[in-house]
Every structure is written in C-alpha cells, then in structure tokens.
C-alpha cells in the first residue's frame, strides 16, 4: 500500500487524496460520538459550545448534568431497570444459545439450515414488527407490561448473536478432543465443562456481550412490551429526546460511550485469545 518511488504526480495526488477522503469518512464515523463528550460538561443548558467553552474557561464546564443523572430518581430507576433486565435476558440467551449452537454445529443435525434460519430471524425481522407481535401475543398470555415479558423478549432478540458467535468458535473446534476425553473415561458432562467449554469460552463470552448490549440498548420492544415499571435507560433517553430534551441526556450518552468502549476492548481481547487458542495467528 506504500507509494512506489516511480509513481507519477497524478498517482501521488490520488494516493494522498484517497487517504484524505478515508480520513474524512472516519471523521464522519467517530466525530458525532466524540463531540457529545465535551458538550456533556456544559455549564449551561445548551446543546452547543458556549463561547466560554471554546475559550477553555473552567467556569464554562461543570458536572451538573452528571449530578442530575445520578441524583434524579427517574434516571436512577431507569438505570436500575436496565441493570436488572439485561443480565437476566443475557443469561437466558447464553444458556439456551450455547447448547443449541453445540447441537447445530453437529453435522448430524437434521434440518440444520431451516432451524438456523428460524433462530437467526429475531435479528433480521425489523424490531417494530417483533415489538408489534410481542405486544399482541404477550397481552394475550398476560406477559405484557411485566418484568418477565421484557426479559423473554430481550432474550429472544439476543439469541441470534449468541448462536452466531458460538457456532463461529465451534467451527475451529477439534471434535477428536471430546472423543479423547471420552476414551479417557470422562462422562459427557465432565467433557463439556472440562474440555469443550474452556475452548469455546471466548466465543460464549463475546456472544454474551452482544446479547447484553442488545438488551441494554434495546428500546423499541421494551416500549411496547414493557410498562412504566420497566422503563429502561434507552426508553428514558427516547422520552427525553422526544419530549423535554434536557442536556442530562448527553451525560448519560457519555457514560454509555464509556460502556461501549469497555465492551469493545473486552470483545477484541477475547477474539484474539480465541484465535490463539485455536492455533490461528491473531491478525
């Protein structure tokens, strides 16, 4: 990709011009997320940089929006709801999903393709349709507006991610290892926990993180399936953005960006570890 010494001026211009274009696209990708971070420290209730902020005047910055987020009962209740819903939904999707992924990666599995298509469909079907269907069906069976209704719905939405990541890890899994364990006298359960699980664990954990973030960020389904008692953080943000737009949202957004960075780092580390475990060179 480096420029050869014999490049013509036109090629040189194109070479650097192309990099500038790419740089602008990266800027487009990342700038909107970065720009809200300083804005969240705004001392005024504005959504733009005040002259004081541009002059780097310390008085123009404050933590008042963060104080509002941590002090306001609405936001705290929403945070609590998010924290109680997402892990349980994740646990459900990972538990069922890992078992199913192991079954699906077995070449003897009948109707593999069809079942896979059904299990992946929650990721493909537009959220508004899932939300509508769940709203109708869950009100029939009395789950609409309950904690478990939201958890079930979120678990269903997280399943495709677990299936995809775990089956991807299992592609590199050497089946002779389980046979070796069995020949040494281990039962299927011991084999699973002592041999298979440690090897596919990175895939399971990154699937779990995907499922977690799916539930943690989800707003459409919870809007319909949940009731006021299940108001999650994204729901509260949605209301905030639609009705009384308050700068506290920017503080919340900044906190969520930090969560995203943490998750991204963990997933990246796991991916490398998984590739190392399976004997691939980390790219």
């Amino acid at each position: 990709m480096s420029l050869p010494a014999y490049a013509t001026p036109l090629q040189r211009i194109w070479h650097y011009g192309f990099r500038v274009i790419c740089g602008l696209i990266f800027f487009f990708l990342i700038a909107p997320i970065i720009v809200i971070i300083p804005l969240s420290f705004n001392a005024e209730d504005f959504f733009t940089f005040t002259p004081g902020m541009l002059a780097l005047d310390p008085d123009a910055y404050s933590l008042k929006h963060y104080r509002d987020f941590f002090g306001n009962p609405d936001w705290q209740q929403a945070l609590r709801n998010s924290i109680t819903i997402a892990p349980v939904a994740t646990l459900l999707s990972v538990g069922f999903g890992t078992l199913a992924a192991i079954g699906l990666s077995d070449s003897n599995m009948p109707f593999r393709r069809t079942i896979m298509a059904v299990l992946i469909s929650p990721m493909i079907v537009p959220l508004i349709i899932s939300a509508a269907g769940m709203y109708f069906f869950y009100s029939r069976i009395g789950l609409q507006g309950t904690y478990w209704g939201v958890v079930l719905a979120h678990a269903a939405l997280g399943i495709p991610f677990v299936i995809i990541t775990v089956t991807a890890t299992l592609v590199g899994f050497d089946r002779s290892l389980t046979r070796a364990a069995a020949s040494l006298g281990a039962g299927p359960i011991t084999t699973f926990f002592r041999v298979q699980m440690p090897l596919i664990l990175p895939g399971v954990i990154s699937g779990a993180l995907f499922a977690f973030i799916t539930s943690f960020d989800e707003v459409v389904v919870v809007l319909f399936v949940g009731s006021a008692g299940q108001k999650t953080l994204p729901w509260q943000m949605f209301i905030g953005l639609r009705e009384q737009i308050s700068p506290t949202i920017l503080a919340v957004a900044t906190v969520l960006v930090c969560v995203a960075i943490a998750l991204l780092v963990v997933v990246e580390l796991l991916r490398r570890r998984s590739e190392r475990l399976r004997g691939m060179s980390p790219s």
Binding site: A100, G103, L104, Y135, F137, A155, A156
Partner: peptide, 26 residues
C-alpha cells in the same frame, strides 16, 4: 442426531414461544 436435536430443542421451543408465536399472532 437425537442428541444434537435435543441440544437444540429447548432453544427452538423458546424461540417459537417468545418470538415466532408473536409474529404468527400479528
């Protein structure tokens, strides 16, 4: 085959109830 299917069955049942049935209802 049965073993593989039994591993998938709980999830399949779960998805059918939590996701496919709502779509069918719609």
């Amino acid at each position: 085959r049965l073993r593989a299917f039994l591993l998938v069955a709980p999830l399949l049942a779960f998805v059918l109830i939590a996701f496919v049935a709502p779509i069918a209802d719609m």
